[in-house]
Design a protein around this nucleic acid. Structure first.
Lengths: 211, 211
DNA sequence: CTATGTGAAAAAGTTCACAGCG
DNA sequence: CGCTGTGAACTTTTTCACATAG
């Protein structure tokens, strides 16, 4: 319901959780799922579930619930998780290595197609089945390969320089694990995944619990 | 200003960003920093900065700004980043390995003191300078060592079982990288770090940018 | 009689504008 | 004057309650 382009941010964070709960639910073979059930399986209140699903092209049946398969499809549709999308990882450190080999990407239609680093000692070596390439070759590479998504796992000091090269290559989406605010033009989307924020949040709450 | 116990969640997410900007700023040797400067260095509007700092025990000087050192101290204080805090990692897979060796924890006063896994083949082996221990020994271990923070990097199917063992051991804070909602008593704080949400968010925005 | 879909109320968070201190 | 600190306006998000459909 509702052809909304421009889903509220908090809703957007919850949709993937519904999707995952639905995939688990799929295995049960049940055809419908109620908002309360979907809610409890994803840790979200049932009225919030219904409100959120308002932004998705799907209709629930009264006294039955939402058709599981349709809902999965609609969520994939709205999240842009249809088809394959190529991405590169910039930064062949520990986190970059872990991410480039993370099998979970496939479930979300992403494929890590190449890995870049600025360290000459790393360039040319193999990590998993990816050969590490030089960041200097990135802009040309991106244009030629038409890759529009990048994951940044370089140290903070290098992040902006790498970002500039990505922009030069015409990147459209950046998943930034470096702990700095990146300066990008308005047509480039940046998602910051700052692990230190998680740490601080944890610290804050644990400190209150124990003093 | 303001002895607030119970800082708004969005503010809590921004405080670590100020802290980091301040640390970078520290190197310049300047004693004061204005809200607009601090804002631009952390990518946040200046009035938002001032509002946020309302929840922190610090006073800015008119026409000068905030004293850098005091502000750093106050932020560390409110975030509970004073002193050393021990934590364990549960799950010796790729992510668990990367996190257990991540040097950044030290900056935030955390120390990964041990690593647990349920796989008998992994138990006993060394990862970095940590020996992998069996999850079955966790509850006793936690009690004896007084560790109250854990990082979960096990697969989704195992996460709740592991969580139950952590709770049995008296854990107070969990940083959960497994993509499931964990069921915990109200006195246990769970911070979910769901990488798939980042993926989905990225996918949504890139899909809109290119169609 | 069960479970959706949605207006309307409440709460939370952001933005603004400006008084007032140094 | 420059820059903080904050009340008030505004916006967004959550919560609730209930009419309505199957």
């Amino acid at each position: 319901m509702m052809h909304d382009r421009g889903i509220p941010k908090p809703t957007l964070e919850r949709l993937p959780r519904y999707l995952r709960a639905l995939r688990r639910h799929e295995a049960t073979g049940e055809i419908f799922i109620s908002s309360s059930r979907l809610g409890s399986e994803s840790g979200i209140e049932e009225f919030q579930v219904r409100k959120d699903l308002t932004h998705v092209e799907v209709t629930g049946l009264r006294s039955k619930g939402y058709p599981v398969e349709d809902l999965i499809l609609a969520l994939r549709q709205v999240l842009g998780l249809t088809g394959q999308r190529d991405a590169i990882v910039v930064g062949a450190g520990r986190l970059g290595t872990a991410l480039s080999q993370y099998p979970g990407f496939t479930n979300y239609g992403f494929k890590i197609v190449d890995l870049f680093d600025s360290d000459p000692y790393k360039v040319g070596s193999m990590i998993g089945d990816l050969r590490v390439m030089s960041v200097d070759s990135m802009p040309k590479y991106l244009r030629e390969m038409g890759v529009s998504t990048a994951i940044i796992t370089v140290p903070a000091e290098e992040a902006q320089r790498v970002t500039d090269q990505l922009i030069e290559g015409g990147i459209k989406g950046i998943w930034n694990f470096a702990p700095v605010a990146l300066d990008v033009p308005p047509d480039v989307y940046v998602r910051n995944e700052d692990l230190a924020i998680g740490l601080a949040s944890l610290s804050y709450h644990v400190a209150r619990a124990r003093g």
